[in-house]
Nucleic acid binder design. Structure first.
Lengths: 208, 208
DNA sequence: GTCTATACAAAGATAGAC
DNA sequence: GTCTATCTTTGTATAGAC
């Protein structure tokens, strides 16, 4: 019996593979990832990857599930808290997202592009309708602005929060905008986005 | 001499390959694309792909250049038109982007994720500083709001315009939001985004 | 210029010894 | 559980006939 449960120094093989897979998949995407890279990074033999997880695809689905959960699961409890005002909900979403994304800025572009490349893998992992469209937040929103589609609100809020992280590689590559400046800007946005959203909510359509 | 310049019925082999490559690359991304797919879709022999373009990578770079130009080149003339007001510039950017994206909704996520995966390929294809940060628009912006970083403005505007296209696959996959509803929404946004941006510009930071 | 055939390399997966 | 060796498939690129 060689198995040792030493949680300090080294982790189980399975966990090592998952950790490495998380890194490589997130960095290069599914298609560009080679299982050999994962094995190497995890310091395990390639064959073990197929022993623990049946295939590259199965392993990926496991990681992807986590990531999707991380990116979208975060908002469910906030959206459906019937005790908080609309303002508070907005502030919480902004705060929680920006804090989480600081630690993993590439999460949005990774998840969104993988979903686009393989919608079938994603399928109905989450019930958007139940989670978002029938949420407490949407109810509150419709009291304030019954004429405004909730989709607009969601796109606006998530766009303001997530887009800088999605566009960042462009600005970083082309020179301007280093990580420090970016960090400062995100800190400013934490304060500004709720104010901006509030201002937008007061704008009425001309046509209507 | 077998070569026929019949521009109506069939196109040159080179053009057929490029057309097919555009489709496949855009749909699946660089890594997941197989040259065999391109050859098949173009109805040409696989060997011809390497005859005309030296490699998969060269072919991709050609396509990518077009796409980047399409996504970012569109804004340069608007940004630097010294004859138009800030309001007009904003409206034009919104109009032109939304019209173009209706025809190719997956362009933003494609370009942004490929840039992220291979920043080196992109390198200094465009001079963001010259094109954006020193643009006429930024000068106008700083007259109105000298305290607001141009980055915020750019992120906000592009986020409101592009994010719905980036997030669309999620909503479409999980059921809600069909293409028709999406189209109607985009039409609404064409009108609303300039108003929203205007409202945001009037919001002052509390701290400052 | 275009095709067939094939070389060559890379990557995913498995068999079987330990 | 882990390793070595190897199979199979796939994907890029080239050689050479027409």
């Amino acid at each position: 019996m060689k198995k040792k449960n030493n949680p300090i120094k080294d982790f189980s093989t399975e966990e090592k593979i998952k950790t490495a897979a998380r890194e490589v998949f997130t960095q290069k995407g599914y298609a560009a990832t080679r299982t050999r890279d994962i094995a190497e990074k995890a310091n395990i033999n390639l064959a073990l990857l197929n022993y623990y997880f049946r295939s590259k695809e199965k392993l990926f689905e496991m990681i992807m599930m986590e990531k999707v959960q991380k990116l979208f699961g975060i908002i469910a409890p906030i959206l459906n808290d019937s005790q908080t005002s609309l303002e508070i909900k907005i502030q919480r979403m902004v705060d929680q997202y920006l804090e989480m994304l600081t630690g993993q800025p590439d999460l949005p572009i990774f998840v969104l592009s993988e979903i686009r490349n393989h919608p079938e893998r994603f399928a109905s992992q989450f019930n958007i309708k139940k989670m978002v469209l029938e949420s407490h937040l949407v109810k509150q929103l419709q009291e304030v602005r019954p004429d405004l589609s909730p989709f607009h609100f969601i796109f606006n809020l998530l766009g303001l929060i997530l887009f800088p992280f999605i566009g960042r590689p462009v600005l970083e590559t082309t020179g301007k905008l280093n990580p420090r400046v970016f960090g400062v800007m995100i800190e400013e946005r934490r304060q500004m986005i709720p104010l901006w959203i509030k201002a937008m909510l007061e704008v009425k359509s001309q046509a209507k």
